[in-house]
Design a protein around this nucleic acid. Structure first.
Length: 305
DNA sequence: ATCCTGAAGC
DNA sequence: GCTTCAGGAT
């Protein structure tokens, strides 16, 4: 259980490490609106939007989303098509996440009598809520989570304390470092550190990083970060075309395949003609995002209700 | 292990 | 142009 390779702070230093970070965070941090609420629904919406999307781009969408569906019951009662269309029109990407969020709202309303589970295990049962989001919502809504482990936390722990690039080790280290019973401020603070001071290009001195005196990377000058899987080129990809289909269907009630095609790509036809589009749309249908209505010789496509 | 998405950052 | 961004489902 003990960590021979990494240099997690000793019991003696841990308190100083914890205090330094919390004081740094409380002295000054970005004032995102979801940091001013403890409503689990509002927190969940912000977390799902924030997955793989820069926080600054989330603010406007978060406001508009809660304006449209102010409570979890409102969202549960909405049509999935409207939620997916909203998601796409606000450029949030990953429209599967809109479907998951809608489904999670339905779970809370129907399976939990309208009130959220208050611990990570219970929250994990909600659709689209994995280990990170479960701990984030438990922390920020109920101050009742364990340490979150996201790319920010991994990067910080790897640099500061030489925690090896291994998920289960990151989890143990993060958990050991968190002051008990302070998940709300702690998880906010450590992710703020990763987002502001210890990003890909660290700004230790400019940001007044509170861990400089403890930091392995600051001492050695090696700011190597854990590997993040690189993505294939987006331009021209199938993923891009899926995104276009969903965006277009968000603008029309229903389209025939032949009407949809030219709007998806100007060179619609040939190798990327009806056959190709049909496959694309069928994939989206199995993801529950669109409905394909195949009647007679006309194939009609729309966002799934 | 692969797929999902789009824009800012560099 | 390529990488990165508060991950999760299958």
């Amino acid at each position: 259980m003990s960590d021979a390779e990494s240099a997690l702070p000793s019991d003696l230093d841990r308190n100083a490490v914890q205090t330094a970070l919390v004081e740094w965070y409380e002295a000054d941090h970005r004032d995102f609106p979801w940091r001013r609420t403890d409503d689990p629904y509002e927190i969940l919406v912000s977390e799902v939007m924030s997955q793989q999307t820069q926080l600054g781009r989330v603010v406007e969408a978060w406001d508009a989303f809660l304006d449209e569906w102010p409570t979890v019951a409102d969202l549960a009662a909405a049509d999935r098509a409207d939620v997916v269309a909203f998601w796409t029109s606000h450029s949030l990407g990953y429209n599967n996440r809109a479907k998951y969020l809608h489904e999670a709202a339905r779970q809370v309303t129907e399976d939990h009598d309208g009130s959220f589970p208050e611990d990570p295990d219970g929250l994990s049962e909600l659709m689209g809520v994995g280990p990170y989001t479960a701990n984030a919502v438990a922390s920020f809504a109920f101050n009742n989570g364990d340490a979150v482990v996201d790319t920010n936390v991994k990067r910080v722990l790897h640099r500061a304390f030489a925690v090896p690039d291994d998920d289960s080790v990151f989890e143990m280290a993060a958990s050991e470092l968190m002051p008990a019973g302070e998940s709300r401020v702690w998880n906010n603070a450590i992710m703020e550190l990763g987002g502001v001071a210890c990003g890909k290009t660290p700004t230790c001195d400019e940001s007044g990083c509170p861990w400089r005196q403890f930091c392995h990377a600051y001492e050695t000058g090696d700011f190597t970060a854990p590997d993040v899987p690189t993505q294939p080129t987006f331009e021209g990809s199938r993923r891009q075309m899926r995104g276009r289909v969903v965006r277009i269907l968000g603008e029309y009630d229903e389209l025939r395949l032949g009407e949809l095609g030219p709007r998806v790509r100007v060179d619609y036809g040939g190798d990327t003609g009806e056959e190709w589009l049909r496959g694309l749309v069928e994939d989206l249908a199995s993801d529950g995002l669109v409905t394909v209505d195949d009647e007679r010789d006309e194939i009609r496509v729309s966002l799934a209700k």
